[in-house]
Amino acid sequence: NQESVVAAVLIPINTALTVGMMTTRVVSPTGAPAEDIPRLISMQVNQVVPMGTTLMPDMVKGYAP
């Protein structure tokens, strides 16, 4: 099972992602793949992402898996 990126903390809208904001988990439906964490760092979210929420590609500005 592939791990997806999950918010480790509450991420406010327009916040640039840091490694400490993200964790990985096997979830369904799958979100952004765990191996993309290095690409996701410094990208901004376009909505509030509550802690424990799977990071879906459409939540991150300019990100395409």
Results as ranks from 00 to 15, higher is better:
residue 2 Q to G: 14
residue 2 Q to C: 13
residue 2 Q to V: 14
residue 2 Q to Y: 13
residue 2 Q to E: 11
residue 3 E to C: 12
residue 3 E to Y: 14
residue 4 S to T: 05
residue 4 S to M: 03
residue 5 V to W: 07
residue 5 V to M: 01
residue 5 V to K: 00
residue 6 V to W: 07
residue 7 A to F: 08
residue 7 A to N: 00
residue 7 A to S: 05
residue 8 A to W: 08
residue 8 A to S: 10
residue 9 V to G: 01
residue 10 L to N: 13
residue 11 I to A: 00
residue 11 I to N: 03
residue 12 P to S: 09
residue 12 P to F: 09
residue 12 P to E: 10
residue 12 P to N: 10
residue 12 P to I: 09
residue 13 I to M: 13
residue 13 I to K: 15
residue 13 I to W: 07
residue 14 N to D: 12
residue 15 T to Q: 03
residue 15 T to S: 10
residue 16 A to Y: 15
residue 17 L to E: 00
residue 17 L to N: 06
residue 19 V to G: 09
residue 19 V to C: 13
residue 19 V to F: 15
residue 20 G to S: 14
residue 20 G to M: 14
residue 20 G to I: 10
residue 20 G to Q: 15
residue 21 M to F: 07
residue 22 M to R: 06
residue 22 M to Y: 04
residue 23 T to G: 07
residue 23 T to C: 10
residue 23 T to E: 09
residue 23 T to M: 14
residue 23 T to P: 07
residue 24 T to Y: 08
residue 24 T to D: 07
residue 25 R to F: 08
residue 26 V to K: 13
residue 26 V to M: 13
residue 27 V to G: 01
residue 27 V to N: 04
residue 28 S to I: 12
residue 28 S to E: 11
residue 28 S to W: 14
residue 28 S to R: 09
residue 29 P to G: 04
residue 29 P to T: 04
residue 29 P to K: 01
residue 30 T to G: 11
residue 30 T to F: 15
residue 30 T to A: 15
residue 31 G to A: 04
residue 31 G to V: 02
residue 31 G to N: 05
residue 32 A to C: 15
residue 33 P to F: 06
residue 33 P to S: 05
residue 33 P to W: 07
residue 33 P to Q: 03
residue 33 P to C: 07
residue 34 A to D: 04
residue 34 A to P: 10
residue 35 E to C: 14
residue 35 E to S: 15
residue 35 E to Y: 15
residue 35 E to H: 15
residue 35 E to P: 02
residue 36 D to T: 00
residue 36 D to V: 03
residue 36 D to N: 01
residue 37 I to H: 01
residue 38 P to H: 12
residue 38 P to Q: 10
residue 38 P to E: 10
residue 39 R to W: 09
residue 39 R to H: 10
residue 41 I to D: 03
residue 42 S to F: 09
residue 42 S to Q: 08
residue 43 M to V: 05
residue 43 M to N: 01
residue 44 Q to C: 13
residue 44 Q to R: 15
residue 44 Q to E: 14
residue 45 V to Y: 05
residue 45 V to K: 02
residue 45 V to A: 00
residue 46 N to Y: 08
residue 47 Q to I: 09
residue 47 Q to N: 00
residue 48 V to P: 11
residue 48 V to N: 15
residue 48 V to R: 13
residue 48 V to G: 03
residue 49 V to W: 05
residue 51 M to F: 06
residue 51 M to N: 05
residue 51 M to W: 06
residue 51 M to C: 11
residue 52 G to K: 04
residue 54 T to N: 02
residue 54 T to G: 01
residue 54 T to P: 01
residue 55 L to Q: 00
residue 55 L to T: 00
residue 55 L to G: 02
residue 56 M to L: 10
residue 56 M to R: 07
residue 58 D to C: 15
residue 58 D to N: 14
residue 59 M to H: 00
residue 59 M to A: 03
residue 60 V to H: 00
residue 60 V to I: 14
residue 61 K to T: 13
residue 61 K to R: 15
residue 63 Y to F: 05
residue 63 Y to R: 02
residue 63 Y to N: 01
residue 64 A to H: 14
